[in-house]
Structures are given as structure tokens and as C-alpha cells.
Design a protein around this nucleic acid. Structure first.
Lengths: 225, 225
DNA sequence: CAAAAATAATAGTGTTACTATCAAATGATA
DNA sequence: TATCATTTGATAGTAACACTATTATTTTTG
């Protein structure tokens, strides 16, 4: 499995970047430091000027990789979803029982992230925090329809559809598999956020995880049709 | 009921504004036009300069009502949640059966909004679109903990807790009433958004509504414990 | 070693997000 | 009706942001 793992080349739509940041050392430093910096100060306070200072490089050099910080956010979150999708596929493919398969899928999508040593320049824990706190901003824009057409959200959408198919396979009678899938994936980010900032609005805490909540939900639905 | 309705004075935390916009004609024009303008161009493109032009007034005058556009967004969305909360209370109070009560509550929280003639300067339909497309941005910030402490999200939180209590009343054995409540309220906004921009990721459309989806979900949970 | 490519440095533009100051209009009071 | 206070409007100014353009320097590659 480790072998296969290392073969994952995260594939991201070419028009998200001007120059592939994976192709150079500076590019990788841009990725690594932007994760640190966005996690630290938040996306609104994050600027290419500050990132330049952080990596000891020039603002203008960063602009040769990404048109603007919005596209960098799309890049980072696409990387994240691609990384999750890889685990999703790999860790469900061997399960034949559709209910077990679905439970495993939900576990992967809702659990707390741990460091992945296969990607030296990416801090997956910080990246997952960025996804929790910033992902919505990547699509809650006036440009969403054009960017969707241009494939900016393709990986995320594919993942939602994969989960939808598993929900439908586990329970062919259920009428809302797509809505449930999007609710779980988006809702998981939301529950993680609430756990960190609005503790009264969630039952999740140190003991109870979003995974517990969503698996219970899906099991109730499965029992009931 | 209409009588009671008109008695609703939407009550919003004083430190969200510098000067109550309800107290003057200019203030009401700021609210009315900001709803139009944010709905039209989106929150990122919205500026106080543009709003000043739109109402034929000066940028500096707007700054006397709101410190910045973030606080204006908090004000608008607080108004929205307060307006929803009022309907929520009024239209559930007479229902004694806890399951019926819950179903009605979910209907109010997830249905498409219609114009309310009681508030001349507020376009509730546009405002609900703003909530769908921009609300997350009001709390997905680095300042969220301080602003939460300052009561900026009090109305929204109260509403989530009201729904949580109804979920618990309808089904005392269910282990995740708070998470389900926050999932429904946030998830409803998300399903409305998907219906408009990512049709493949939801089952909701012209025929099937987010209300159908969430009521079905809650009914399955109720049957099953 | 030369040519090409990548990066860095510097400067400049228009916009944003304000703050400050002062003038004009409006309204309340004596 | 005079005057005083409050509100609004106009103008100007600042620092930061979001870039673009140009040129110099360094690094890579053939």
C-alpha cells in the first residue's frame, strides 16, 4: 500500500496555476509557507507580500505561480480533496459489503486528519484546518458558475458523487443520496468548526466525534428503508 | 397575528453598529441599498464607496453607522435570523404534538422565503439570498471567538438551540440533537446554494425542496428510536 | 562558456479601507 | 427669530492591497 501511495501525483487543473508549484523548489516553498501563513493569520489577512517575506522571496515571483490568492486557495483545497479522495478509494475498494463500505467512507471523510509523511512540504493537519475555516469562501463568490464551468471544483464534486453512489448502493430506496452526501461532507467541516468555536451548537467534543454523529445518522437511515 | 407581527422590533446587539440605522431615514436607506447591492455584486465587491454612490450619499456618512462592511453583514444577517426566529416562535407555539411542532419548525427554517410587507425597507428575498451566499463569511474569520464573546451571533445561536430543544422533545433518545440542529440550519443554506450552483450535488430542484429532504431525514430519525 | 530561464528588485497604478477636518443643512430650543 | 446642536456632505489624506511592468541578477541547461 505504501508503494501505491507514493505513486499518487495529485492532479490539479492546469488553469488554477500559471506555473506548476510542484515543478520547482520555490513553488514548493510557496505551498508550504502559504499553508503555515493562512493557518496562522487567516485568509483575509493573508497577502502575497507577507508570503514573500515569509519565504524570503519576492512578491512578483509568487505572481508567476498564482494569479491571486483566491486561486492559491483553490489550489490548496483541491490538493486536500485529492489527497482525501485517494484515501477514500484505497481504503474502501477492498470492502464488498455496501454498508461496511459506506461506514468506512464516512470515517475517512469526517475523521480528524493526521500527518502524512509522503508529502514533505505539506502539513496536512494545518491544511485540514484551512479547509475547515476557509473552504466555503472558495465557492461562495459571484464567479462560482464560471469557475465551476472551468473545472475548479472538479475533485470536490467527484468526491461528493462517489459518496452519493455508496449511499445509494447501501440503500437503493433512499430518495436523497446526493443531498445526504453533500450534507455529510460539508456538514463534517461545519461540525469540526463548531467544536472549535461554538461548542453549544454541537454534540461533538473530545469524546464524541463528527464521525460518530454521521455514522449514526447513516445507520438510522439504512435501518429504515 | 398581524397585530403581533407588527410589534416585532428586531433587536440587534448595540455594538454591531455605531448608530442605529433604524433611527433615521439615511440609516434605512443604507440598509435597503446594501441589501440590493450585496445581492447584486457580492460581498467581496461591495464597498462603502459604491454604497454611497447608490444612495446618493457620502461614504463618510455610512461610516457613522457601521465601522466596516463586516459589521454591516453581521447586522443584516442578524436581522434575517431574528425575522426567522419570530416566525419560528409564532408558527410553532400553538402546536402541542412535539413531532408536528418539529416538522413545522423545520419547514420554517428550510423553506424558500417570501416577501414580508411589514418591513418596507427590507427585501427579504434578496436578504435570504445574501444569507445563503454570504453568511458563512461572517463567522469564518480569525476574529470569531472575540465576536462570539461579544454576542455578534447570539440570535443565530439561540435559534439553533431552540431547534435542538424541539428535536430532543420529539425524540428524547436521540444522542445528537445539537449537531442535527446545526446541520439542518446550516445544511439548508447549503442545499439552497447547491440547487442554484451545483445541481449534481443535491437532489433538490424545482420539484423537490430542501424542506422535503430535511423533514424526511428527521422523520426517519424519529421512527427509529 | 553562452544562452535561456527563473528569480529578485524596484517602481508605479488604481483601489480599498479607512480617518480627519470643515462646511452646509436641518431641527430643536429659548 | 436667533442660536445651538446634531446630522450629513464634501474634500483630502494615509497606509495597505492587488496587482503590472521593467530591468537586473542569479541559476540552470545545452
Amino acid at each position: 500500500m505504501d508503494h501505491v501511495y507514493k505513486n499518487l501525483k495529485v492532479e490539479i487543473n492546469n488553469d488554477i496555476f500559471l506555473k506548476d508549484p510542484e515543478s520547482t523548489d520555490l513553488g514548493k516553498r510557496i505551498i508550504a509557507s502559504s499553508i503555515d501563513l493562512i493557518d496562522d493569520i487567516g485568509f483575509e489577512h493573508f497577502t502575497f507580500r507577507k508570503l514573500g517575506v515569509a519565504i524570503g522571496s519576492n512578491e512578483s515571483s509568487i505572481y508567476r505561480y498564482f494569479e491571486n490568492k483566491h486561486k492559491l486557495l483553490i489550489y490548496l483545497t483541491s490538493w486536500y480533496w485529492s489527497w482525501i479522495e485517494y484515501q477514500f478509494i484505497l481504503q474502501t475498494v477492498a470492502i464488498s459489503n455496501p454498508v461496511d463500505k459506506l461506514v468506512q467512507a464516512i470515517t475517512i471523510l469526517t475523521r480528524e486528519v493526521v500527518q502524512d509523511m509522503n508529502y514533505a512540504h505539506i502539513d496536512e493537519i494545518k491544511l485540514s484546518n484551512i479547509v475547515i475555516e476557509e473552504y466555503s469562501k472558495s465557492y461562495l463568490t459571484k464567479e462560482v458558475d464560471q469557475e465551476n464551468k472551468d473545472g475548479y471544483f472538479a475533485i470536490y464534486k467527484r468526491l461528493v458523487l462517489r459518496l452519493r453512489d455508496m449511499i445509494a448502493a447501501a440503500n437503493p430506496n433512499y430518495a436523497f443520496p446526493a443531498s445526504l452526501s453533500s450534507t455529510i461532507i460539508e456538514g463534517s467541516l461545519h461540525q469540526h468548526f463548531l467544536k472549535n468555536h461554538f461548542t453549544a451548537l454541537t454534540d461533538c467534543n473530545q469524546q464524541i466525534t463528527p464521525t460518530d454523529y454521521f455514522i449514526n445518522l447513516v445507520q438510522i437511515i439504512n435501518k429504515n428503508s
